Amino acid sequence: MSPPAFDPFGELVPTAEPAVAPDRGPNWLKSAGIGLFWGLVGIIVLARAMYFEPGAFSFANAMAWAQGLFALL
Results as ranks from 00 to 15, higher is better:
9 F>P: 01
8 P>L: 11
17 E>R: 14
52 F>P: 00
52 F>V: 15
48 R>S: 07
51 Y>H: 13
60 A>S: 11
71 A>G: 13
3 P>C: 04
62 A>F: 15
46 L>N: 04
55 G>C: 03
58 S>H: 03
48 R>G: 14
12 L>T: 15
5 A>K: 14
14 P>T: 11
55 G>D: 15
72 L>M: 10
64 A>T: 09
4 P>S: 06
39 G>P: 00
47 A>K: 03
45 V>D: 04
28 W>T: 15
24 R>D: 12
10 G>R: 06
24 R>F: 09
45 V>K: 05
45 V>P: 00
72 L>T: 15
24 R>V: 12
9 F>T: 02
44 I>G: 05
6 F>V: 10
31 S>I: 13
12 L>C: 08
72 L>E: 12
34 I>A: 14
17 E>F: 05
5 A>W: 00
11 E>P: 00
11 E>T: 03
12 L>S: 04
34 I>S: 09
36 L>H: 06
67 Q>E: 14
11 E>F: 10
55 G>R: 07
17 E>G: 02
20 V>I: 10
22 P>M: 04
64 A>S: 11
38 W>G: 02
49 A>H: 04
39 G>W: 01
65 W>Q: 11
66 A>L: 15
30 K>M: 09
22 P>E: 15
66 A>I: 15
19 A>S: 11
46 L>T: 07
69 L>H: 05
73 L>W: 08
73 L>N: 09
34 I>L: 14
39 G>I: 01
6 F>D: 03
47 A>P: 00
44 I>E: 04
55 G>F: 01
58 S>C: 06
2 S>K: 11
47 A>M: 10
62 A>Q: 07
57 F>D: 05
15 T>E: 07
33 G>T: 08
20 V>A: 13
68 G>K: 01
34 I>K: 07
50 M>K: 14
5 A>C: 08
14 P>N: 07
20 V>S: 06
31 S>G: 05
60 A>K: 08
12 L>H: 08
28 W>Y: 10
42 G>N: 13
17 E>T: 09
70 F>N: 09
46 L>Y: 02
4 P>N: 05
